[in-house]
Computed example of a mutant assay.
Amino acid sequence: MSDFWSSTISIGFHGLALAMVLYLISVGLSVTMGLMGFVNLAHGAFAMIGGYLMTSLMSRYNVPFVLALTAAVVVVILISLILERLLYRRLYGGDELDQVLMTMGLIFISIASVTYIWGPITQPMQPPPALSGQIDLGFRTFPTYRTFLIVCGAVLVTLLWLTLERTRFGAQVRAAVDNLRMAQTIGINTSRLFATTFALGSGLAALGGALGAEILPITTFYAMDNLIYFLIVVAIGGLGSIRGPFFAALLIGVSDTAFKYVAPELGAFFIYALTMAILLWFPRGIFGRT
C-alpha cells in the first residue's frame, strides 16, 4: 500500500474515532440548546466528570471497564438532575448573559473541584486487555480500542436516532423543539421533558467523555479546552438537530485530524477558518431550523 493511501486511511480512521466522541458529547448540547433555548457552556464539564470517574474507578479501584463506565454515566446523570432542578431551571427563558455567566461559573467550579479531588495530573486511560493492542482487518491493522470506539459510537448513534425518531418521548422532544408553546398547549409536560432531556444529554456527554478519554485526555481544564470544539459541532450542525451534529462531527473530526497531520504547526487554524466559511454560508448551521 502506498504512503498516500496509508496516510489517507489512517487520517480517516482516527478522524472517525474523534468524530464519534465529539458527537456523543455535542448532540446533547444541541438538543438542550434547541429545546430549552439555554446557553449551557458547562456541558463539557459533564463529559470531564464522566472521564474522571471512569478512569479513577479503573486505575485506583480496579473496577471492570463496563461497570466503571456505567457508574460514571449514572453518577453524572444524577448530578445533572440536581443541577437542573436547583440552578438551570431558574434561568429557563431568562437573559442569555445570565445563562452564560452561570454556566461559566460552573466550569470554574468544576475545574477547582476536580483539581482538589484528583490533582492537576492528567488521568491515565488504560483500556482493558480485551481492547488493547491492534486488530487486523486484513489490509492493515488498527488500534483495537479506537475500532471499538467507532463501532460503539455507530451503535449509540443508531439507538439515539431511533429513540428520538420512533418513540413517544422523541416525538415530544421534536414537538417542543419545533414549537414550545404549542407543545405545552396540547398537554406535554415540558418541565419533566426538559429535565429528562437535560439528563439524557448530560449522560451522553459523560459517556463520550469516558469512552473518549484516550483521544481527548482527561485534564483539569478539559471543559474549557474542548468547549470550542463542542460549540463548533453544534453551530455547524444546527440547534435542535440530531443528524446535524453527526455530520458536523464527522466533518470536524476528519478535517482536524487531516489538517494537523498535514500542517501541525498551524494547529486548529484551519478548523476555525472552515467554521467561519460554513457559518457565513449557513448562518443557522447546515441542518439548522429556519
Rank of each mutant, 00 (worst) to 15 (best):
M1F: 13
W5R: 10
S6E: 09
S7A: 14
I9N: 11
I11C: 12
G12L: 10
G12F: 04
H14D: 00
L16A: 15
L16Y: 05
L16E: 13
L16V: 14
L18F: 09
A19K: 07
Y23G: 05
S26V: 09
M36C: 13
F38S: 00
N40D: 12
A42D: 04
A45T: 00
A47K: 00
Y52E: 05
L53S: 07
M54W: 06
M54V: 01
T55F: 02
T55K: 07
L57E: 04
Y61E: 14
V63H: 08
P64C: 15
L67I: 15
L69R: 06
L69I: 10
V74N: 07
V75M: 06
V75P: 01
I79G: 01
S80Y: 07
L81H: 12
L83W: 00
E84Q: 14
E84D: 12
R85K: 08
R85N: 14
L87N: 02
Y88E: 10
Y88C: 13
R90P: 03
Y92L: 13
G93Y: 07
G94A: 14
D95Y: 13
I107Y: 03
F108C: 05
A112D: 15
V114N: 11
T115Q: 15
I117L: 12
I121F: 14
P129T: 14
P129G: 08
G133A: 05
G133P: 04
D136V: 00
L137G: 08
G138K: 10
R140Y: 00
Y145M: 05
Y145V: 03
R146N: 06
I150W: 01
C152L: 15
V155D: 08
V157D: 01
W161G: 00
T163L: 15
L164Q: 03
L164K: 04
E165W: 09
R166D: 01
R168Q: 14
F169A: 14
G170T: 03
A171Q: 12
V173W: 09
V173A: 08
V177K: 02
Q184L: 12
T185G: 07
G187M: 14
S191Y: 09
L193V: 12
L193I: 04
L193G: 08
T196Y: 11
L200V: 09
G201F: 01
L204H: 04
L204C: 06
L207R: 03
A213P: 05
I215W: 05
N226S: 04
I228S: 03
Y229G: 02
L231M: 15
I232G: 14
L239E: 11
S241N: 13
I242W: 09
I242S: 14
R243A: 15
R243W: 11
F247H: 08
I252K: 07
I252T: 13
T257N: 04
A258G: 14
Y261H: 14
V262H: 11
E265N: 00
E265F: 03
G267N: 00
Y272T: 04
I278S: 08
P283K: 10
R284W: 10
I286D: 05
R289F: 07
T290R: 15
